[in-house]
Amino acid sequence: MPDPRPFAPELLADVVALTAAMCDIESVSGNETQLADTIEATLAAHAPHLEVMRDGDAIVARTQLGREQRVIIAGHIDTVPVNGNLPTTRVTDPDDGDILVGRGTVDMKGGCAVALALACRLPEPAVDVTFVWYDHEEVEASLNGLGRLARTRPELLAADFAVLGEPSNGAVEGGCNGTLRADITTRGRRAHSARAWMGVNAIHAAAPILERLAGYEPQTVTVDGLDYREGLNAVGISGGVAGNVIPDACTVTVNYRFAPSRSVADAEAHVRALVDGLDVEVTVTDSASGARPGLDAPLAERFMAAVGGAPAPKYGWTDVARFSELGIPAVNYGPGNPSLAHADDERVPIAQIRDVERGLTAWLSASI
Rank of each mutant, 00 (worst) to 15 (best):
T251R: 14
G188A: 09
V252C: 10
P48G: 12
N337Q: 01
A191I: 03
E301N: 00
V15I: 08
A36K: 02
C176M: 14
G110D: 11
T152Y: 11
M22H: 07
N85M: 00
R62D: 10
A321W: 13
P123Q: 03
G239K: 06
T222N: 04
P293Y: 12
D3G: 12
V82R: 02
P87L: 00
D266N: 07
A234S: 14
V80P: 00
A141H: 13
A269L: 09
A113S: 05
R189Q: 15
A341M: 09
A74Y: 00
A21S: 12
G170D: 01
V235H: 05
G243D: 13
G84A: 13
R148H: 10
R212D: 09
A202C: 08
C250W: 14
G75K: 09
D276C: 03
P154N: 12
F258D: 06
V307N: 03
D95F: 03
M22R: 02
H204C: 07
D355R: 15
L326M: 15
T318L: 04
F258P: 08
A362D: 08
M304H: 12
L149N: 02
R153H: 13
P48D: 13
I350L: 11
T88F: 06
S142K: 14
C23M: 10
L274N: 09
A119R: 02
R67W: 03
L122V: 15
D183V: 01
L274F: 10
E166H: 08
P338V: 13
A300D: 06
A305W: 07
H204S: 12
V282P: 00
V320D: 10
E217L: 14
R181N: 11
D227M: 00
C120L: 13
A267G: 00
V241F: 09
Y256A: 01
R262P: 04
H49V: 12
L364M: 10
Q64S: 15
A171Y: 07
M108C: 13
A182Q: 04
H192S: 06
V280I: 05
A115W: 03
L295P: 05
A205W: 07
I368E: 05
I184A: 06
R67S: 04
I203Y: 04
R262G: 10
G225F: 00
L156E: 03
R148N: 03
W197D: 12
A74S: 15
A291H: 00
G309E: 01
M22W: 05
V16H: 03
V172C: 11
V348W: 00
H76C: 11
E211R: 10
V91G: 04
S367N: 15
P94F: 04
L210P: 09
N337A: 06
K109D: 11
A205E: 11
V307S: 05
A21N: 07
R189S: 15
W197R: 12
E26V: 15
A300N: 09
F131D: 01
P338Y: 12
L360Y: 01
